[in-house]
Every structure is written in C-alpha cells, then in structure tokens.
Design a protein around this nucleic acid. Structure first.
Length: 875
RNA sequence: GGGUUUGUAGCUCAGUCGGUUCAGAGCAUCUGUCUUACAAACAGAGGGUCGCAGGUUCGAUUCCUGCCAAACCUACCA
C-alpha cells in the first residue's frame, strides 16, 4: 500500500478521538491503583476557546496522559463555571435584542431564560477541547450550578455563617453601575487614565472674600460634600480651623476639619470630603461623624435630590458642573492629571465607591491554614517565585464581599422575617421557618412571613469549592470518589487568578477537608503575540485556535504551544512554532514510512547494525531519565525539547542512517524489529505531547487491534547506567562531522568516495566502529597509519589525526590551518600555565581542580607536539 | 509609593552549590545539496566583552553592593 508522503492530521485526529471516547479510555473510577487527579479550571459557561485555554489545557493533558502511562489511575475532571456577572450580562443582552427587558421579568422567568440559554450555548468550549485532544473523563463534567453542587455552596455559606465568619454590614463597596452590583476588590482593575485635577474655591462662611481652594478629580461629587479637610499642622489653613466653608452650587455650609490623612503637598492641601462616594472620605467621615449625603443613583446618574442635574450621567455632570463652577467664578484652574481609576473586571465600567449593605466573609478567620500550607510547602507553587506574592496577599487579606445584586447564581440563603429586623440563615426555606419561629418565639409564623435575600453569591464563592464539590465531597462526605481523588495532584491555571480562586480553594480545602486541595499549582504564563502584546479579542491579534488546529493539526498546535513556554514565563506565541510542530510530525511520519518501505532478509545483524542498536537503546535510556527529571520539575518544554532531539537527531539523523541498507538491498528482519521496538518506545515518550500522531503510528507500524491504544500502554522503564558505547559513539559522531566538514570545504560531493587514514592511540575503538564510518562517510578504504600520509589533507579531533588523500593538496592552506591550531593551543596552554604557576591557586584551589588544570596542560602539550610534527612533515 | 522577578547569540530560553568538556540549545541567518523516508528535508558555517560599574576571591557569567532597563503584583494619594 502506498503511504502518503506527508502526514495529514485531519483524517486522523477525529478518528482517534472518537475511538478513545467509544472505548472509554479516559473514564476513571476508583480502584487499587494510585490516583492522579486534575480538576480543570472551569471556563465560563459563556466562554469560547482562546489561546490561553489552549496553553492551559494542553499542559493539563500532557500531565494527565503521562500519568496514565505511568500506571496511575488518571482522572481529569472537566466542567464549567456559571460566571454570574458575565453570563447574566449576556442573557440580558440577548433578551434585550428580543425586546424583553429584565425589569419586566420575574426572577423565575429570568432564570428560565438563562437556563435555556445555558443549555443552548453554554459549554461550547468543552466541545472545542475535544479537538485539542483533551483526555477528560467527560462523564464527570460538572457545572457550578448543578443541583448538588449548588447544595454544597449553600451548605458552606450556612456553615460559615453559623461559625460566625459571615456577617452583613453596610460598607463602602466597589459598585459596578453598569451591572448594578457590588464587586470584590479582586474584580476591580486599576488603569492609568489621563484626567483633570480641578482646583475649586469654596468661600469661608462669615469671612467674605476669604476662600479655601480644594483639588479634586471628581467635581460632580461636590453635591455630596459634607466637609473640607486640611492637615492639622498646615500653617496656611490654621486660621480656618473650626470655621465652615460654603459649597458652591448647592450653597451648603460644611465644617472645615483637620485630619492627618490629608497630604499638605498634594494639590492645594485642602480636600473636599464626600463620605458617600469615596472610600477614604468615608473613613474620614466616620472619624469625624460627618453627615453622609448621596448624590448618585445605582446606575451612576445624579439622584433626584439635585433637581438641576437629576438623571444626568456622572461623566456628563462632571463637565457640566465644571462649566457651572467656572461661570460662577469658583473654578480656579484645571490641570492635566494622571491617576489610576478602578474598572469592573467584567463590564469595564468605571467603579463607583458606594455605600451599601452586603454580606461579608471575615477572611482573617479562615485564611491561616491556607497561608501555612503554602509557606511550609504542603502546596507547592510552580514556579516558586509566586510564593511571595501569595504570602503578601494572605497576610493582608481583606474581608470578602460575597453578595452580588444579580439573579444568575446561588441565591443567598438568608431569610428576613417580615415586621422585624431579624433574619435567619438556613439551607432551606423550611429550615429557615423553624429557625425563625425559634428566634421570634412566634409559632404562628408561616412561609409568607419570610422573604429570602434577593442577592446571589459571588461566582468565586462557588468555584472555591471546585476540587471538593466535583466529587460531592460536601454533600456526601464519605463517598468513594472524594476519598480516592482528593487531594488532587496538580492545578494548572493562570497567575491572574491566584487570589480570586487558587488561594480561596486552598482556604476552603483546609476548612472543609482539613487538607490541601492539590499538591502542586502550575502557574502558566500569559499568551502574547510576537510583540509581547497580550492576545486579546479587541486587539485582534489572537489566532482562532480551531483554525490553527484545522490547518496544522492539534498535535502541531500542542507542540507549538509547549515548545517554548517554561512554567511561569509568558508564552510568545508564534505560528512558526506551530509549523515546527507540523514539520516534526511530518519527520516522524517519514521515519515511519522508511521503516515500512524496507524489504526484509533473514540475515543476522552486522556489527554496524548491532552497534547502532546498542547505542540507540542506551541513548533512549539516558534521555528518558533526563525527561523524567524535567517532568518532576514541571519543565514540560524542556522535556519536549529533549524528545524532539532524541527523535530527530539521534533516531532519524544518526540511527536510521547507520542501519540504512544500500539502495535496493533488504534489511535484516531482526534489525528492523529492533528499530521498530525503539520507534514504539519513542512514540510512547512523545504521546503525551502529540497524542494523535503517536496513536496512529502505533497502530500502523505494527498490526494492532483498534482498542490496543498507545494512550493506555505503559511508558518504557528508564534504568540508565553510563556505558562506554555512549562516549565512544560521541567521538565517532564528532569525527564524522569533522570529515563531512572537510568534504564540504573541499567541495567533495557526497557521492564521491574517499579514503581515510587514521593515526590514533586508540586504534581499537576506530576498528570497532569502522563499519559505521564507512556507512556514513562513503569511504572506500580505512587504514591505520603512524606517519603522515602525503598528498592528503589532514584534520584532527582531540588527539586523533585523519588524512584524506586529495588530487590537489594546497600545502600552504594546510600549513595555515595547522598554524592557526597551534596558535590557539599555545594561547590555551599559556592560560593554563599561568594558573598553575600561581602559587596561591595551587595551594588554595581544591586538588581536583588543580589536577584538571594539569591534565589540560598535558593534553595541550601532546596536541602541540602532534601539530608541530604535522607541520614539519609538510616541509 | 511598597514588593517580587528578570536582564546570557537576531529571537525564545537553558546553564553556573565560583574552577575541565563553560559560554550552550532550538528557531532565524548564511553556504552547499532535489543524496534512493523526509526540500515541511539533508550536510556544514558564522554569531555573545553572559545589562553597566564596583567589591569579595588565587579565580566571577555564577556571590555581594550600587546603577540602568524591563515585567509583574500591590496600594486610597484627592
């Protein structure tokens, strides 16, 4: 049968993925083997595959496939996150397009639409992951709003509440006026923005003509000012202490207060205080018991209390008020000013600090064990440099705002008792009713007297349970799965969500399982383009992963992603790397084609063939050990690089050339069998990185049943001990390169055979390998000599000298070459001698080092005499 | 502002508990070759005062200090 000249992934990849799924090879159930577990960082249910996912999931797949082949019971749990804000926003937009307003719907109606949307469009990303070859146990696919998962989220909330860790309080929160919800600190992204710093003067009450000038970036909040603050030691303003200032526009008199928070050097040294709309002002307000006036609605427009501006958007009002202040002579100046402004992670809206009543988790109460777990290495971060960041965050952790003013999510299980200020927290309405009866002493209470909190929980307050709840560890605490799979082995995720998610999973793991949720956290880099720009939709610099796969095959893309991305380093994605992967696949394909093309003979292996096989076997062991070490350190790109070179250089460039029969000749069946055995080992080693190609070839290179999959075979055992053949072959390879180089420089065609004369103290070695030299150098004759051969060019490798007869020997060029070598060696010897004649070196340096220098000396001297002799012989 | 990390060939990165084989790899570049598995290939070659300046040492790319540059995290500077 004719085998295609080029590897064509598209015919092959879908075929094997289907075969794997049908045979359920990725399915895992607890058994007597040791488990190796990875839980996928659940992508947003709204998500589509982007390059970041590709990197992330390729890494997970490599780790899980390798574990499977190392004899572990490997389990990779896939799933999606309900992503409350992002999904709700998407559903609201979809409804709006259909002419439906969210405000016209009841909660249940809205959720009905949302679930419908989720069923229809959600989880596309999981289907896309199959194209990548992800070997997930799809039967375990989880969703953070699955009924049982939800139950565990509520269970945890109730438990934390009962422990006194969760409380409800009116505080400054990060308000997203577009999504109309509170956000946690982690959901706020600060961006440098060019803005204006307005200097505005306020008249001092009772002192006509006396003004106090403040500086602000937000003149619109003037409406809600309730004080002006100066530093207590500021001489400029001492005469104003205790007076009042009149706020322009609203003409309200507010106290002039003193507070250390004010920096004298900044702006004018006077600060307008707006407790309702600024975090610091709020704190100042608390210290001075200031009135709190709100001027903004939850959507960022001016409230009805200020009729002349009511309903205007905060940014429009800023300009309008600046104009009005200018008109009334209160605006002193406007300065260009750069400051960092908080934006919503999900909607990109400018965050409005706002006072509101929310649920909070007291992080200090729960974070201790999680900090220890990382500090003492129980949870290992890879690369380790992230430990400091983690520690810093954990040591300064702030309370977590848990509630979100949304519908899509887990509704907070708090129930308010009508006609009272009381509430109860319980896992169900029925339980809540009982609690309420007990609390109020009123047995007559009914469901109608309870009203559940309208808000839902922050998404991360459900995904922080992921490694536990995908195994139902909270709802069925003693079940087989949780006992078997928890703790998981490695979490692969992006450093961006170290606090959002990783830290919180460790917290919940320690709190609810009393044990780390994972042993290792592999933090990937960010995928950037060649110019180091982050890949993003808005920049349009991100290739579509599915297109890439279609063009180059999943194996090629996987190779491209991992070939140059050490843990923790950003990945500068370049399609040429994917091409390199595609080329590599093709190279292997062609090696396979070669193996299949040979005619067979019954001959015994020649010495050349036997040596080649023996050498390669040892080489595979040597590199295999190296690869194992890389895996242990999660250095996947180094592991891949080693495999790449092992296959391309050692197997293809050297080994196959060594055993290649003369054109038209058959090959010994025994030799081919060995070559195929080793080829299969190489396929296994490569399989985690390039699963499709290796599966295909594993089935093609020898006849196999379809279900005899490479992905569930065991890795070869790498028991390596250094053997002399490895060193000797290195020397032979070096000689071969040197002779090829010589041929190239003399423009001798590879077709033209040459004679090779060798002058060496180790004739035996060259005698042994002579057949390999003949094969790879196209020599017609190899002879050992002790004298120079006349009419020949010469080359030297270490202390071996080689002569190759030439028709025209350029004696002068030969001399030049030797002179240059002499010059270099003399210089080298001189530097060695300088060291050795240094009294302090000889007496201080370790004996080993001194001996090495002495060896360098004798080697160099030997080489010099060899060179000088050659020079003499040339005349 | 605070903290962390990084600076080695054109690019992406290894490496050094200070001392042969230490200045490396892959890609890119250049030169030959359509050599009978593979031109998506083969055979070769060139390329770096290891960011800069000091210090410690017999010896520093490797340790220390300072400087310069970059990246990331973090912070309320109106």
């Amino acid at each position: 049968m004719e085998i295609a000249k080029k590897y064509s992934p598209k015919d092959i990849e879908d075929k094997w993925y289907e075969a794997w799924i049908n045979a359920k090879v990725f399915k895992s159930t607890p058994d007597e083997r040791e488990s190796y577990t990875i839980v996928i960082p659940p992508p947003n249910v709204t998500g589509v595959l982007h390059m970041g996912h590709m990197l992330n999931n390729t890494i997970q797949d490599v780790l899980i496939r390798r574990a499977r082949m190392k004899g572990f019971n490997a389990c990779w749990v896939p799933g999606t996150d309900h992503a409350s804000i992002a999904t709700e926003a998407k559903v609201v937009r979809m409804l709006r397009e259909q002419g439906i307003k969210k405000s016209d719907l009841s909660r249940d109606e809205f959720l009905g639409h949302a679930f419908e949307w989720k069923e229809k469009y959600g989880g596309i990303i999981l289907k896309q992951l199959r194209k990548l070859g992800a070997s997930c146990d799809w039967d375990r696919t989880s969703f953070t709003m699955d009924p049982e998962y939800s139950k565990s989220v509520i269970q945890v909330f109730v438990d934390l509440y009962n422990k006194g860790y969760i409380y409800r309080a009116n505080r400054m929160v990060n308000w997203d006026p577009v999504a109309k919800t509170a956000l946690s600190d982690e959901e706020v992204i600060f961006k440098e923005k060019d803005g204006l710093l307005y200097h505005v003067r306020y008249e001092v009450e009772g002192m006509e003509g006396e003004y106090l000038t403040i500086a602000t970036t937000r003149p619109e909040t003037i409406l809600a000012d309730t004080a002006v603050a100066v530093h207590p030691d500021d001489e400029r303003y001492k005469h104003l202490h205790g007076k009042k200032a009149i706020i322009p526009i609203v003409n309200r008199a507010v106290p002039i207060i003193t507070d250390d928070y004010v920096e004298m050097e900044f702006g004018t040294g006077a600060l307008k205080v707006t407790p309702a709309h600024d975090v610091n002002d709020y704190e100042i307000g608390q210290r001075h018991e200031l009135e709190v006036i709100e001027c903004l609605n939850d959507d960022g427009t001016i409230s009805d209390n200020f009729p002349s501006y009511k309903g205007m958007d905060r940014f429009k009002v800023r300009k309008q008020i600046a104009k009005d202040l200018d008109a009334s002579g209160h605006l002193v100046e406007k300065k260009q000013y750069k400051n960092s402004v908080g934006h919503s992670e999900r909607t990109d809206a400018v965050i409005e600090p706002r006072l509101s009543l929310q649920w909070w988790l007291d992080m200090k109460k729960v974070s201790g064990p999680a900090l220890d777990a990382v500090n003492n290495g129980d949870v290992e971060l890879v690369p380790a440099k992230f430990i400091n960041t983690y520690r810093h965050w954990m040591e300064n952790v702030k309370d977590w705002c848990l509630s979100r003013q949304l519908w899509w999510g887990h509704q907070i299980p708090a129930y308010y008792i009508k006609g009272t200020n009381e509430h109860v927290v319980a896992e169900s309405a029925e339980a809540a009713l009982e609690l309420a009866k007990a609390k109020t002493g009123k047995k007559s209470l009914t469901m109608a007297d309870l009203k559940q909190d309208e808000d839902v929980l922050d998404t991360w307050a459900s995904s922080w349970l992921w490694p536990i709840s995908v195994f139902k560890g909270l709802t069925q605490p003693e079940n087989e799965d949780i006992k078997y799979y928890y703790p998981t082995d490695v979490l692969v995720t992006a450093p961006e969500i170290l606090f959002f998610w990783v830290a919180r999973m460790i917290i919940s793991g320690m709190e609810y399982m009393g044990e780390r949720p994972f042993k290792h956290v592999y933090l990937t880099g960010i995928v950037r383009d060649k110019q180091r720009r982050k890949m993003s939709k808005s920049l349009g610099n991100s290739p579509d992963p599915l297109d890439l796969i279609a063009e180059n095959g999943a194996d090629g893309v996987r190779f491209g992603m991992l070939f140059s991305s050490p843990a923790g380093n950003d990945l500068l994605f370049d399609e040429s790397q994917v091409e390199q992967g595609r080329n590599f696949a093709n190279k292997i394909w062609n090696a396979f084609r070669f193996l299949k093309s040979l005619e067979l003979s019954e001959a015994e292996p020649s010495r050349r063939e036997a040596l080649a096989i023996e050498w390669l076997k040892n080489r595979v062991l040597e590199v295999g050990v190296e690869i194992e070490e890389y895996y242990d350190k999660f250095r996947l790109s180094d592991a891949l690089r080693s495999i790449y070179k092992l296959i391309w250089d050692d197997y293809c460039s050297w080994f196959l050339e060594m055993i290649k029969p003369n054109y038209g000749d058959p090959i010994s069946k025994k030799v081919l069998d060995s070559a195929i055995d080793i080829f299969e080992d190489l396929l296994k080693i490569l399989h985690p990185f390039m699963p499709f190609l290796t599966e295909e070839l594993y089935h093609e290179v020898r006849d196999r049943e379809e279900e005899d999959f490479i992905c569930v075979t065991q890795m070869p055992d790498f028991q390596f001990e250094a053997k002399s053949i490895l060193q000797e072959m290195e020397l032979i390879k070096e000689v071969i390169s040197a002779v090829r180089n010589f041929r190239a420089s003399k423009q001798i065609s590879p077709k033209e055979s040459i004679e090779l004369y060798i002058s060496t103290p180790e004739e035996k070695v060259f005698e042994t390998y002579s057949e390999i030299l003949v094969q790879l150098l196209n020599t017609s004759k190899i002879e050992f000599v002790s004298e120079k051969v006349s009419g020949a060019g010469s080359i030297r490798v270490k202390n071996h000298e080689f002569y190759i007869p030439l028709l025209n020997v350029d004696v002068e060029a030969e001399k030049d070459k030797i002179l240059k070598e002499i010059e270099y060696t003399e210089g080298f010897l001189k530097s060695v001698m300088k060291k050795l004649s240094n009294e302090r070196f000889v007496s201080n340096a370790p004996e080993k080092v001194v001996n090495l220098e002495k060896k360098k000396q004798s080697d160099a001297e030997e080489k010099l005499s060899l060179l000088r002799k050659s020079l003499e012989e040339l005349g």
